[in-house]
Amino acid sequence: MIDQATSAPSRAWLSGVREAFPLLGGYVPVAISFGLIAVQAGLTAWEATLISTLIYAGASQFLLIGMIAGGAPLWLAVAMTLLLNVRHAVYGPNLAPWLDRSRWWLVLMHGLTDQVFALAHHRLPQLPEAQRLGWFTGAALLAWTSWILGTLLGALAGDWLMARWPLLGEILPFALPALFLVLVAPRCTSKRWSLALMISIGVAMLCSLVGYTNIGIPIAAACGALCFTLVRFTPEAPHE
């Protein structure tokens, strides 16, 4: 897929849509779960869908609904949700060198989720400048739309879907780790990078296993970066 370079800027968004397709395997089942849980918490299908449209932040939406349903003060629910999303702060600056001055980027930042960032961070540097905006628009819109429609589907028919195809909801989400693996593997260009990336992966897994999935992401990334800074192999690889 990556080898099929887009030949015209007008085709770039199609390329973005195509390359973001694997994200759907992870997004749709989780969005269906969110829709289902939101309705069970007392929201209507349209309210659940509107939350996915406006907030669009995966795990923190579950936290928000859980805290509201549990009777937590609203200010605390908002604060905790935003705290969970703080990790997104490093995504924009990491993409900045590849973004032009188009004002559209400001709007498109609404679609900068963990998964879209991972894909864009890998792909934008490989694309000609004229195609980046189109590519990102296609990829981000597909992901956003799938999240919104998945929520609506879950809110309207989540119960029935989960009962009818229980295994599908377990199998499709593996598309996410598979995609991330393909994005991380090319970065293992030396012992130093490989070790740091493995530390980051390992710490994140440990955090997730003990129930600190979201806070685990920045912690694991910081551990990986620290490892890269402190550990040096001799002789250094020339491309470092």
Binding site: D114, A118, P173, L176, F180, A204, L209
Partner: peptide, 28 residues
């Protein structure tokens, strides 16, 4: 562009992707 980015920030990008991989690898 890359040179203009603070070193810690350019390191955190790939490490965040690796961390997202880590949490998504834990099976349900």
């Amino acid at each position: 562009g890359i040179e203009a980015m603070p070193r810690w920030l350019s390191l955190l990008g790939p490490m965040m992707v690796a961390a997202v991989l880590g949490v998504s690898l834990v099976p349900d």
